[in-house]
Design a protein around this nucleic acid. Structure first.
Lengths: 342, 342
DNA sequence: CTGAAAGCGCTTACAG
DNA sequence: CTGAAAGCGCTTACAG
């Protein structure tokens, strides 16, 4: 990776290298007619060589255009993690007069770093918001430091006072909801972990363990199962737990999607929830209220978390130095019908 | 509404009106120090009077900034209507070198028109994407025509050859899924409508009715119930249907969220699905696979629909005249366990 | 506390 | 087919 902060090439640089006027470069860039084939080629080579891409602001100002499309939509109740993130980021940007550009990463993405570099360069981004799991990529962090673009991390694994970071208080939330279950009289409680690389995974387990210790429950290693935060892995984990000689009377899943998998598997085996087994989720997604029975779960203030992070990000790029360091938000336990005493 | 296309005011207009230099206006706008209180006030009044807001491109070019924040996120499987819309619009914009700005409307929004006008003006938008239900607002349409901003409508109610429009073939899809149910031997089939103002509502009902006619089923008006496309209204509609003297043996809901409500209500009454009643949804949301039993439903190619619409929108603003007119996309029936023969 | 000048990086309109 | 000039609407750097 090239660490030298080179100034971004302009149309003049291309013109000079290709030995033509800037107007000709403009013609080639905009696919206008009336350029000789070999002139066009010379320009294209120069563009490639310099890694040139037009400055959107200059183009917009000069041409009296914005190259921007708006999407106006009504926001339904539907919760989804990324929509909450979007909402918070949008709110902060709007207030500060910033626009928010999105770049969803879908594929397994072996070109992740290139994608992000292009994104930053082309739109001259002044800051980047990184939710998990991208927030945890060392490579991405290094790239952005290299590009000198400040970042706001949403729920990253590692605490770093030098970054703008926001966290949910996962340990405390998990402790609360576990305590709730234990106080209902459950003594054999299963726990389904999330993906190990997520910061929340360790914290949610830690909160579970602390609550167990405080209630004098010895933790049976057999009752702690791994999952991947998705529906299918929740089903698999439930299968593992239900198959034990002495199955748990309550299961705490590290998110709602896995808890839905537990419910699904229980249903397949005619195990009743909550009569035979209590089930707990995490996140309070819309799913939590639509499955049967409605899930007892934990709600994170994602919108506010992101909004706060982006507010600070904008202050930082605006030159206002902030030193709040990482901020932690507390969560709410939402009790529904998937849990009961025994 | 002011129909006169007035040129957008610049910093010079404000300076002239306030009788100061543009530099002073700049100071006030950017909240810089060193402006006398009454000078500041004069500028503020002029800004207000002219409805001035800084040109983002000029500001960016001059100050070597972009006023843009990026949000990079990994896209989970989770389906949601608006996320699919986003994905399609983003894909089209990215390819064409456009940026996509979002403006979610949350509140009941009595200031809807002002909100959209500001959005268009401030970012100098060249086009607007309007999904339902906003696509159906005559007021919004008129406003945007007035502002001379072309629009792409996603699944609007009214066909209009002068607009860029994309539709799912709701009538045909509803006909297919109804036929499937009828061919399984059901003769008393309930139908839960969506919101009347949505174009899809009438079409889905029409497809249902056509299939019934083709199969020689007389439609009992009692079996057609209204809903609002949400979970709760699905429950209410199910309650109404289950309470009838001769309840239906199959229920077709106009979307998955209402179908989930039907399942929930059935569960509360110990009515078994699909043994006692078959249930069908529409949209194939992530919910469809996570509730019990997994829903038989219809999948619309929303991503492709929006992508196509935005492609055409961008061509239009780019001056390429297109005359494809409204485009209709076909849907797929997805058969899962919520339906069975009788 | 206020302002005149230069310039950001392009496109438009015009000339050859 | 190609280019020199003007200008888009702001901010920066400097002067008073």
């Amino acid at each position: 990776m090239n660490s030298v902060m080179r100034k971004r090439p302009t149309i003049h640089d291309v013109a000079r290298l290709a030995d033509v006027s800037i107007k000709t470069v403009s013609r080639v860039i905009n696919a206008e007619p009336n350029v000789q084939q070999d002139t066009r080629n010379r320009v294209l080579v120069a563009v490639e060589k310099l890694g040139y891409s037009p400055n959107v602001a200059a183009r917009g100002l000069s041409g009296q255009r914005s190259y921007a499309i708006g999407l106006v939509y009504q926001d339904p109740q539907e919760f989804s993690y990324i929509k909450q993130v979007l909402g918070g980021a949008l709110a902060a940007c709007e207030q500060a007069g910033y626009s928010l550009l999105l770049r969803p990463i879908t594929e397994p993405e072996n070109r992740l770093l290139d994608t992000i570099r292009d994104f930053v360069r082309q739109s001259s981004l002044e800051g980047i918001v990184l939710p998990v799991p991208l927030a945890d990529s060392r490579d991405v962090q290094m790239l952005l430091e290299d590009l000198n673009v400040p970042i706001a991390q949403i729920s990253p694994r590692d605490l770093n006072p030098n970054f703008i970071q926001v966290f949910a208080d996962d340990e405390a939330a998990s402790h609360s909801i576990t305590s709730l279950v234990l106080e209902q009289g459950h003594t054999r409680v299963g726990f389904i972990k999330g993906i190990d690389s997520h910061g929340a995974t360790g914290l949610r387990l830690a909160g579970f363990e602390r609550a167990c210790r405080e209630h004098g429950i010895t933790i049976d290693g057999e009752l702690i199962v791994s999952g991947h935060f998705d529906f299918e892995s929740g089903r698999l984990a439930a299968r593992h737990l239900f198959d034990q000689a002495e199955p748990p009377s309550a299961i705490i899943a590290s998110n709602d999607d896995m808890a839905a998998g537990v419910l699904f598997e229980a249903r397949e085996r005619n195990i009743r929830v909550p009569e035979d087994v209590s089930v707990v989720g995490f996140d309070d997604t819309p799913l939590a209220q639509r499955i049967w029975p409605p899930l007892t779960t934990v709600r994170q203030p994602i919108h506010q978390m992101v909004r706060s992070a982006v507010d600070r990000l904008i202050k930082t790029v605006g030159g206002v130095s902030i030193d709040d360091g990482p901020t932690r938000f507390s969560c709410d336990v939402v009790v529904r019908q998937s849990t009961q005493g025994r």
